[in-house]
Design a binder for these strands. Structure first.
Lengths: 243, 243
DNA sequence: GTCATACATATGTCGTACATATGTATGATT
DNA sequence: AATCATACATATGTACGACATATGTATGAC
């Protein structure tokens, strides 16, 4: 055993090496979406490995959406969907609590920052959709309906931002968000009621009004107040107590 | 040919079906990180397919980080890294301009919303690190040094947020951010200078001071002003002109 | 009881053969 | 000559069988 150090990171599988080699090759040759890749056999021969190994490496790229392949057309570089890979893994059943709390927080952060984009795109925004949701909420009676309208309202804000990536990101994070919120709520039932003590609550109608007639600064501050319930949950002391 | 409709979405590959079947199985049986999976041969026999096909389906899960496998220990459910999959695909060379613009914007949104988390965790924040960066920046002479300090400052804000997921997200988005910004800058050289016309610029020192002695509201507004140059680039008219 | 050795086992790699779908060339029909 | 149907070639998809390799377990020597 001539182990220079405790474990020379020759821990890489053969397929791992092939994958890296391929990645480098694609970069170096400046492959772009639509470009055709060499055939599997050519790659296998060029790298001196079996087709099986090559295929497994290619399978990884295919899984990530970097390449696509069809029966006789061969393989081509694809335009990967950045969020799709994340989506397949965002399973509350698999993620640990810390990560989910951080994702929960991330969604709040995005929601806070979203206001400025909304004002940036105000001119072509369709406020009537938002208006409808607010009205529906005000007519709602059951708690379930109210919650549903709440979700709709915030989803619509994302939609109005005009940023499809952010919108998809929100949709994608929702299960985690709901999961964390449900968990936090049951650990701290009293918190839903004593919010009125410190600040005047900001309704969705308030936000809509500010969006239409106010300025970004007002909107930011109102949104913070509106989300304050959630932000409170993120207090480290509370977090420690709930874990 | 008994095609009921033009194309019954039997377009799924065999491996696709195996993958779905496995996914469902894992959900139904409530598999959790650490749990061992059946052996490849058992799965193959149970589903009536070859080990090759099973292995390709499993390879996808392995690629996504849902499972891990070692030589004799078999396979176990893993805790997937939500961002790792995204990272492997965030290649400016592969993504289209629209997506990259949206990611650029997303980073701004996060940066805007980050302030409130910073104030939430103020008490255990280490401002001296931020202080050092600001000082270094003020002593900097070359444009390159200044840019570097700028990046350092904002990175440090992420770090001080205490949210590791958001922090990693920022690191991950940086290449795209830089790529888009470089592109925007060269298309609109004049914009760097005429910022002083409308608003008084907010320096990093201002931000630091507000973070220490001010309140979230002030910080939000200052950060918006600080990032205004970037936000301006997102003006739809400018975006259309640059594409 | 500790250590070294041999064995069993599950994943990793390989080679080959065949299935399947897609593109291309061939040839018949009008 | 243009169009359509057919046959063929080709590259990926699937399958099977064999062996390599690493890890856990049992066996046995001292």
């Amino acid at each position: 055993m001539t182990l220079a150090k405790i474990r020379p990171i020759e821990n890489f599988s053969q397929v791992d090496k092939i994958e890296m080699s391929l990645q480098e090759y694609l970069r170096a040759e400046n492959f772009q979406p639509g470009d055709a890749l060499p055939k599997e056999m050519e790659l296998a021969e060029a790298m001196g490995v079996s087709r099986t190994a090559i295929r497994e490496a290619l399978s990884r790229f295919r899984t990530l959406g970097i390449i696509e392949s069809r029966k006789n057309r061969g393989m081509v570089i694809a335009k990967p969907d950045v969020l799709n890979n994340m989506e397949r893994v965002l399973d509350p059943q698999l993620l640990d609590d810390e990560t989910m709390n951080e994702i929960f927080e991330m969604r709040l952060v995005i929601e806070m920052g979203l206001g400025d984009v909304l004002f940036l795109r105000k001119h072509n925004a369709n406020f009537s959709l938002l208006e409808k949701i607010v009205e529906k909420e005000e007519r709602a009676t059951t708690q379930l309906d109210i919650v549903e309208c709440d979700i709709e309202f915030h989803s619509m804000l994302y939609k109005l931002s005009g940023n499809k990536t952010i919108m998809r990101f929100q949709k994608l994070l929702r299960p985690v968000f709901d999961h964390v919120y449900a968990k936090l709520s049951e650990n701290a039932e009293a918190y839903t009621d004593n919010t009125l003590n410190d600040v005047t609550p900001v309704t969705h109608r308030d936000l809509l009004h500010t969006l239409k007639y106010g300025n970004p600064e007002q909107f930011r501050n109102q949104m913070y107040t509106h989300l304050f319930d959630y932000f409170k949950e993120l207090n480290p002391a509370l977090r420690a107590a709930s874990s």
